[in-house]
Design a protein around this nucleic acid. Structure first.
Lengths: 117, 117
DNA sequence: CGTCATGTGTCATACCTAGTACACACTATG
DNA sequence: CATAGTGTGTACTAGGTATGACACATGACG
């Protein structure tokens, strides 16, 4: 699994090649944290930041928040809330899908989307 | 939503009617926490305990761990891990199912269980 | 009646989370 | 060459998490 910090650094530096506004300092300022803190995050010197900060960072770097949160070892609060409202149901479903191949899960997603319930 | 503490208390006292071994003290000792701490948990004087403690408590009181964790505002670590391994897929699925009625979700569960992938 | 168990109040604590503040050395640019 | 911007090291902290230790008053049991 790719580490959170390095992934961020790579992404930011890529963006920076075309746009000087993607420096540690400026990105940090835009998402409302200290530059030194972002630097440490990117080098993995500290643990990934809070969910809120991770999401702001994801948006800033035009990345999928759920993917970044996953790398940070977290699951989005809104997903957790959905699960908590019907814990038995969702726990069973998710454990059921643990070993299912991607295409099987996708099929379920599509079925539900087009479902006529 | 029922609160975590009171639900625990109620359940424990119910068990206690038939079995004197379900006192605050004895339950606490069996699951490895201080009696005073369990007392505070049951009265909601402190926040619900850690996931590990909650699960031990659930087993001790013969309750569904996922349900108790949900009341505690948490989602089981093993479910989170499943989601984190394929964040996009599961995020989409779960958000898709947010408004789906129970029977629709259950249908999906059954389909997957009997699925031929 | 003694003693054992019960629930709870008070106080203390170790560790974690999620950062801030500031200075310093290097680099690029006009 | 000045200066503006860059990344990073060191030091610090407010607030929360998850308990532990112990004493005390009450109630039940033999």
């Amino acid at each position: 699994m790719t580490q959170f910090g390095p992934a961020i650094r790579e992404r930011r530096e890529r963006l920076r090649r075309d746009d000087r506004r993607y420096s540690v300092r400026q990105v940090a300022t835009r998402i409302g944290i200290e530059p030194a803190y972002l630097s440490k995050i990117e080098r993995g010197e500290v643990a990934p930041p809070s969910e809120a900060t991770t999401v702001r960072l994801a948006k800033e770097l035009d990345q999928d928040p759920d993917v970044l949160l996953a790398m940070a070892g977290k699951v989005s609060g809104d997903l957790q809330e959905i699960i908590r409202k019907r814990p038995k149901l969702f726990a069973e479903l998710i454990r059921q899908l643990k070993e299912a191949p991607d295409h099987a899960v996708l099929r379920v997603v599509r079925e539900v989307r087009d479902g006529d319930w």
